[in-house]
Design a binder for these strands. Structure first.
Lengths: 249, 249
DNA sequence: GATTGATACCAGAATAATACCAGTTGTGTC
DNA sequence: GACACAACTGGTATTATTCTGGTATCAATC
């Protein structure tokens, strides 16, 4: 997109005065919108901070803050001495399915993770059923604790076929980043939600009392061609977590 | 939402003098209502305390107390030096949530219903909040047991505004049939799902043991013009019921 | 004690303007 | 093409002001 167009688009976004957002937030939201709507194309370069600052009538500090936030979220790529580039991939994998981290952040809390184990191992009976494999076929299992404001909130156990993930060591932070690099990013998911009661091990990991209700989410992720990639079970402390969904007729 | 709109809406809420609620509670309830009805959108920023105090004619202590209470409940996010933000429970848009009867039938079981009560009555505190009515305004409450193959599986409690349903006797089988006849068929719903533990009364009705996990679904149904019609809470026996939904990119 | 008001002060965020440093890109010359 | 230099870029820092939430105090009323 030509600079002229981007800048006037952003100028409109920032000029909106009927709401209480800080200026950097208006610019951030405007940029994010421009990227999502492909007014700012993937791989394109942004006007420089100084140009945006001058053209939008904002201080460079304000412009930088907006850009930094989007870089943090993966929308933009920052390189010292070089113009900022629109990332060629956007984080979202499945529409309407936000990541745990996004979800926790949206509740005003800080997300965190603690790895419990990453191994190649034999599948459990439910993993055999879910992934449709033989009981003697090994898989990669990733188990971690999910935190919100440093409080354990969920135990997540992901089982991934070795076809798509040969080694557990490939995953440092995000499983989906690795799957994407390997052209195995899921396009469809089935989620099953139910309630349960905390087990002694879970009670210890989640630091909650016996009898605490558990919100259990099983997720099966599929490629476009229908092959299953991953089976993940997440067990949330039911006293601390809920799901909100929207439905329209 | 524009500050002007928020402030005049809240001014109306606070001006209600027909009840005994303290001022901070009126403001708190008004804010909660505005958030639930999405007049105050998730992720939006509030006017500052000082602006609200001046515009609503309340002391800042009063405004702060209302906001603090909502922040404590997770509706608002407080950040020192920065305006208060409406928490965004990231809402997932899901397809495939079907009616109870359809769902049970698709599992090869026969759905059934047993009415526990149909009455015009005073609202509970959560119904007051959910429907945005005054505590002295009566509503229609319909309580029934949901069966699968004659086994009790859920307790459903629906509260409907008398604007849309003047009498409980109008409902013989399906609430939605009646609402449709009265041109009040909901077009949109928000559902909140969480886990809990069965109460003694529920254990008796659902014929399940103490400690059984409960899958709780709260549903708020809206007309096309945004007005709320109904607030329903359904408590499912977690050992017998789960939800399966599909999502795609 | 709870509610509510008025006022004062503190700490942090948002924003602006300016200066300087380090890295990249563009341009001109050989 | 290689190289030097200028211009541009992002990165960091400083000073300053204003607005924000956070805390405290005194006071009146129910």
């Amino acid at each position: 997109m030509a600079r002229f167009d981007v800048v006037s688009y952003l100028r409109e976004q920032v000029a909106q005065s009927q709401d209480e957002r800080p200026l950097y937030r208006k610019l951030q939201d405007g940029l994010e919108q421009a990227i999502n709507d492909e007014l700012l194309e993937r791989g394109a370069f942004m006007p420089s901070e100084r140009v945006l600052s001058a053209e939008l009538g904002l201080s460079r500090v304000t412009v930088r803050k907006a850009i930094d936030e989007l870089a943090e979220k993966g929308y933009l790529i920052r390189r010292h001495g070089s113009k900022t580039e629109v990332a060629s991939r956007v984080e979202k994998t499945l529409s309407g399915l936000s990541s745990f981290s996004e979800d926790i952040r949206s509740r005003g809390m800080e997300p965190g993770t603690r790895w419990l184990s990453k191994e190649i191992t034999m599948p459990s009976p439910s993993e055999v059923m879910a992934l449709g494999i033989s009981p003697s076929e090994q898989l990669v299992r990733l188990e971690r604790l999910r935190l919100a404001d440093s409080t354990p909130i969920a135990i997540e156990r992901a089982a991934v076929l070795r076809t798509f993930l040969p080694s557990a060591d490939l995953v440092s932070d995000s499983l989906y980043d690795v799957l994407e690099q390997r052209n195995a990013l899921p396009k469809r998911a089935l989620q099953r939600m139910r309630a349960g009661v905390v087990s002694p091990r879970e009670a210890e990991l989640l630091q909650c009392p016996d009898g605490t209700p558990i919100f259990i989410v099983e997720r099966r992720c599929f490629l476009e061609d229908g092959r299953i990639v991953e089976f993940t079970e997440t067990r949330y402390n039911g006293d601390r977590y809920d799901f909100v969904v929207e439905q329209s007729a």
